[in-house]
Design a protein around this nucleic acid. Structure first.
Length: 304
DNA sequence: TTTCCATGAGAAT
DNA sequence: TTCTCCTGGAAAT
């Protein structure tokens, strides 16, 4: 469920909390026992994020040439949960939007008041695929759709098949525009294609289309390049805000009628559009629900 | 207690 | 296009 902003936020969190530290790597659940054995006792020497993929680099020391990369994709349900002593300042949990946990990211975790030296790692909660244990804290991973140890070459191959990421400094808007314009597929479908644009998920998809007034079924090749460039710039801002806050908020303040009006159309079927009052509608596109305002986002003429 | 559903994506048909 | 996998909270029974 987490979209790209959560992954970049995680990347930052791992850097801040664990960079350079030697980690005890285990798989309490057992399903990652072999991979954990490879990483156990190494140091976290690098972190990276591209789209919804998180990469944690492990090596003997910071200068070691051979880095083992842990690639994690949270899929629909994965999440990381942190715990630690007073020196281990981390969001309580990041990942899947458990209503209480990830979305609000309650500032301080329960153990953060524990003085350094008195903290002990809690028992793993649920099916923990990987536990990264350091002196002052722990990170537990549950429910990932991908969790594997790969080489630098294999990591490069992952980057190669992913499209530009609005949150990365190497994100290339021209590549995004070309990727959409090249295809005779609905633009709403292309926004979910990680080879076209990496990191966008169902919420950012629906909201970006709304904010740019584009009907989800409009064909990519028929969306003017200027509109796509504007959408990219919009996503850069929206997603950066998501990284900073840990929440997806796409509504402008003047459009919020209630405190929790975070989105314009996502999961608002049947409710009035915050700008025009029309009822928001939904349909299924490539197996995922897609939402839009039938007035703000006009269905294009046939075959466009 | 069971079923449903979710901010995903790869494989199978 | 449909199936499948991973988890856990909410909704339905």
């Amino acid at each position: 469920m987490p979209e790209g902003h959560s992954i970049h936020r995680l990347s930052l969190a791992f850097t801040e909390l664990l960079h350079g530290q030697r980690l005890e790597v285990t798989s309490p659940q057992g399903r990652f026992a072999a991979g954990a054995a490879v990483l156990d006792g190494l140091r976290l020497v690098d972190t990276d994020a591209h789209g919804k993929h998180l990469f944690l680099g492990f090596a003997r020391d910071l200068a070691a040439p051979d880095v083992h990369w842990l690639r994690v994709h949270l899929g629909l349900y994965g999440s990381w949960t942190f715990d630690g002593d007073a020196t281990f300042q981390a969001p309580h949990a990041i990942g899947a939007p458990r209503r209480r946990v990830a979305e609000e990211e309650t500032a301080v975790n329960g153990a953060s008041a524990v003085p350094a030296g008195e903290w002990q790692a809690p028992e793993p909660r649920g099916a923990v695929r990987v536990r990264l244990l350091a002196e002052h804290g722990v990170a537990d991973l549950t429910g990932p759709s991908a969790c594997e140890v790969i080489t630098a070459e294999e990591k490069a191959a992952v980057h190669a098949r992913l499209g530009p990421d609005p949150l990365r400094t190497d994100g290339d808007v021209a590549q995004f525009v070309a990727g959409v314009r090249r295809r005779a597929r609905p633009v709403g479908e292309l926004l979910m294609d990680q080879s076209v644009i990496a990191g966008v998920g169902n919420i950012y998809r629906a909201e970006a289309l709304y904010r740019e007034r584009i009907h989800p079924w409009r064909l990519g090749k028929n969306v003017p390049p200027a509109r796509l460039r504007a959408m990219w710039a919009d996503l850069e801002e929206l997603m950066a805000d998501g990284v900073a806050t840990g929440r997806i908020v796409t509504t402008e303040e003047e459009d919020r009628q209630e405190e929790d009006d975070r989105w314009y159309v996502y999961h608002r079927t049947g409710r009035p559009c915050l700008r025009c009052g029309s009822r928001v509608v939904e349909d299924v596109m490539a197996g995922r629900r897609v939402f839009w305002c039938p007035r703000e986002q006009r269905r294009p003429p046939a075959a466009s």
